[in-house]
């Protein structure tokens, strides 16, 4: 699951494999802007059934937090 989530983040951001790690944060990656962030939250639900409530989704700033929500960290 962890790998799937990281692969999905790379797909949304249009990045090659291996750039995103569990420690990556939003401000480290230029492509991870607010538009991409919205798409990421949507695709986590659509593809991997990871539903993050709206008020928490807007607070997320790192891969670690996403993994925690998915219950894999």
């Amino acid at each position: 699951m962890k790998e799937k989530i990281i692969a999905l983040i790379e797909e949304v951001l249009g990045l090659p494999e291996g750039i995103i790690t569990p420690e990556t944060t939003m401000d480290e990656v230029e492509e991870w802007d607010s538009l991409a962030h919205v798409m990421l939250i949507g695709m986590l639900e659509e593809r991997l059934s990871v539903s993050i409530p709206l008020d928490e989704a807007v607070e997320i700033t790192s891969v670690k937090e996403i993994l925690e929500f998915a219950g894999v960290e």
């Binding site: 919205v38 949507g42 593809r47 989704a57 807007v58």
Partner: peptide, 17 residues
């Protein structure tokens, strides 16, 4: 599957990926 309420609420994006 065509629409996405969460991206709509977060960023006025109605469509799923």
């Amino acid at each position: 599957k065509a629409f996405s309420p969460i991206t709509w609420r977060m960023g006025k994006i109605p469509h799923s990926s």
